[in-house]
């Protein structure tokens, strides 16, 4: 399957970390990967990454929109705090919950690398959110 995944969020540091972990996981699952982004106009505009995962020779892509902070104008969001009925956390811990949900919709991906990373960094709270998805 081919996937086109939108990552939209405001906490840039955390989003970059999540994207990095996701790309490594996707690479391990033998996907061909391409990342695109648009430059944000000001410091407070949410950042938007588009990740293309190519696993088959078809030219169609399954679109998955991950609106981590409910900041996009896309109507049919797949994952967002309002759709998943969760509260936005002050320290953006809900990112990990939504990230965990992404692994459920792409079955080829193995969350072992992300869990391993979080265990190594002793980020227990993040791991709890990630696993609860």
């Amino acid at each position: 399957m081919n996937y086109k995944i939108f990552f939209i969020g405001q906490n840039r540091e955390l989003l970059n970390l999540i994207l990095k972990l996701f790309l490594i996981t996707a690479k391990e699952a033998d996907y061909a990967i391409k990342v695109e982004s648009s430059l944000p106009e000001n410091l407070f505009e949410p950042i938007c990454y588009i990740v293309f995962l190519k696993g088959s020779e078809k030219n169609s892509f399954n679109e998955i929109v991950m609106d981590l902070d409910d900041m996009s104008v896309v109507e049919n969001k797949d994952f967002s705090p309002s759709k998943l009925m969760i509260n936005k956390d002050k320290n953006a811990l809900h990112y990990w919950y939504i990230f965990g949900n992404l692994f459920r919709s792409i079955e080829d991906l193995n969350p072992a690398y992300v869990t391993g990373y979080l265990l190594e960094q002793k980020k227990e709270l993040e791991l709890k959110y990630f696993r609860s998805a």
Binding site: N42, F44, M71, V73
Partner: peptide
């Protein structure tokens, strides 16, 4: 099309 809403600096 822009898929992000308009946001300004607070």
């Amino acid at each position: 099309q822009r898929i992000v809403k308009n946001y300004f600096c607070p």
